[in-house]
């Protein structure tokens, strides 16, 4: 994933932040244990949201403990032990990163390509392992990837259509969490809209790069037929803003419907504040907050 689904820290209580962090840490540790050390390196905080949803829906008992982390060797970090849970989160993380890396290989940027090339062999093996556990999910993800490359080849100028494959991927991931059909539909929609959000953010974020390298971006196809200047940029940002707000509105409807109570304060923070903050960061052109 891409680092857009994050909590908005200024509004977090300290204990919420600790839980949020510990979910991230335990995903990271588990990845290292089960899929190999390298798989933890490109991990982003996005995965913590999936982890939180998995923990709140499965409602199994968790244990908090303090462990050392090789990436931050000085202080001990708080970790969750909930071994059966986070199974899906880890597998999904591996699969999504694997496909992202393959996507980066086809990218025109040199740096991205080099990083992808270095990491890919490790992920190939990990991905095979994850596929074995969730064959359905891996099927759906590969199908979505195929659709994605087809849309890129066609150079579609519809943002709705271009976001569809990413959204489908996340739909597949989130619906795996469901216990019954009704929940499956709701979680699927939550995932779909989240994926759509991520795609639109990414498309806006990569706009300048894609203009330079000539990469595919539906926003370029739609708005930059007659060149690019600050006026066009404004139009694009406004268009993305509308699309993002529509997405978040629909997202909140299904989120309210799901009642994920266990970590409600943290997931509320992510849904209502974090996502908007991410988009604000992207649309104002700042790279990191």
């Amino acid at each position: 994933m891409f680092g857009y689904v994050k909590a908005y820290k200024p509004y977090m209580r300290i204990y919420e932040y600790e839980i949020y962090r510990s979910v991230y840490c335990s995903v990271c540790k588990r990845l290292s244990r089960e899929y190999g050390f390298v798989t933890r390196l490109p991990l982003s905080y996005d995965i913590a949201f999936l982890g939180l949803m998995e923990l709140s829906l499965k409602e199994s008992r968790i244990k908090v403990c303090k462990e050392r982390c090789p990436l931050h060797p000085i202080r001990k970090t708080v970790c969750l032990r909930a071994d059966k849970d986070l199974d899906l989160t880890c597998a999904a993380s591996v699969m999504l990163t694997y496909h992202k890396l393959r996507d980066d290989m086809a990218d025109n940027g040199v740096l991205k390509k080099a990083a992808a090339m270095a990491l890919l062999p490790f992920f190939k093996k990990a991905n095979r392992q994850a596929e074995k556990r969730y064959p359905d999910l891996s099927d759906k993800i590969s199908k979505a990837m195929k659709l994605q490359s087809e849309i890129e080849r066609r150079k579609s100028d519809s943002l709705d259509e271009a976001a569809h494959p990413t959204a489908l991927m996340m739909q597949a991931v989130f619906s795996e969490l469901a216990a019954d059909d009704e929940q499956r539909e709701k979680l699927g929609r939550l995932g779909y809209l989240l994926g759509r959000f991520v795609y639109v953010c990414d498309a806006l974020d990569d706009l300048d790069d894609d203009l330079r390298t000539g990469g595919y971006d539906p926003l370029i196809e739609r708005f930059c037929k007659n060149g690019f200047d600050s006026e066009v940029k404004k139009q694009i940002t406004a268009f993305c803003r509308d699309s993002i707000m529509l997405t978040l509105g629909a997202l909140s409807e299904v989120y309210v419907d799901l009642h994920p109570m266990r970590y409600k304060d943290i997931t509320d923070n992510i849904i209502y504040l974090g996502l908007k903050a991410s988009f604000k960061r992207v649309s104002s052109g700042r790279k990191e907050s």
């Binding site: 509004y11 509308d242 707000m245 529509l246 509105g249 629909a250 509320d268 504040l273």
Partner: peptide
């Protein structure tokens, strides 16, 4: 409904 969402309205928003 969609127009209000487009303005940034979100259902059940405790921060709004």
């Amino acid at each position: 409904n969609m127009a209000s969402q487009r303005q940034g309205n979100m259902a059940g928003n405790p921060y709004q």
